[in-house]
Design a protein around this nucleic acid. Structure first.
Lengths: 104, 104
DNA sequence: TGTAATGTTGCAATAATATGAAACAAAACA
DNA sequence: TGTTTTGTTTCATATTATTGCAACATTACA
């Protein structure tokens, strides 16, 4: 399997962007309202360089978009449905994990 | 943000398991029917050790489960809805990425 | 028992990500 | 212009992931 279709690579990129607790929290914040980098950094007590980098990862994955407003850059969520995935799967999965851990 | 809630770590683990093209393909195969390691390895032309390792990652994330049947170990999908996430977001996201790439 | 079929794990080399500090860039405005 | 505010990028280091081969484990069955 050396020429994995691009479709799956793109899909994996999306999941990769989601594969970090802080980035998930950031997306949830962005689901409430648009945020600029500095406000989000303050809200989450994280260095602005990390927030900026994470936001650009999410943007590259196509999950958010941004607009510059003066010295601020405002980010907002583009695909709110991605956050539903988690809740969709979570119940089933938690059941499953409980089973699994009991076996160990 | 040094004590990220466990909820988000668990969620990130799920996405991490999904963050690889081959693992996504494997999940799609498992959505069709249960597979054993050797058959899946043959189907995808991948070494069985990799298939086995990826399957146990997916299992640990709670996405699939397994049953030994003689010398075979049969794996099957537990949370089919996770595959819908991709399609759910994909259309919006592809639009978004097109916009983004045109800007570059 | 011992041999074949199937799965899992350990190891090592390589590649990719994460992290935070510091340097740099862009816009606003005195 | 030059100073402030906000964002982005660079760099170095540490951690984690990927990959394939070889060794080991489990089950079935002659």
């Amino acid at each position: 399997m050396k020429q994995i279709e691009r479709k799956y690579e793109r899909r994996a990129e999306i999941f990769k962007a989601l594969a970090n607790p802080l980035r998930i929290i950031m997306l949830e914040k962005l689901a409430e309202k648009p945020w600029c980098v500095c406000a989000l950094a303050a809200e989450l007590s994280v260095d602005k360089s990390i927030v900026s980098k994470y936001l650009s990862q999410l943007k590259l994955a196509g999950l958010i978009e941004d607009t510059r407003k003066g010295t601020l850059v405002e980010y907002r969520l583009v695909a709110p449905c991605v956050l539903q995935v988690a809740s969709c799967a979570e119940e089933t999965i938690q059941e499953q994990r409980k089973k699994l851990l009991n076996e160990m």
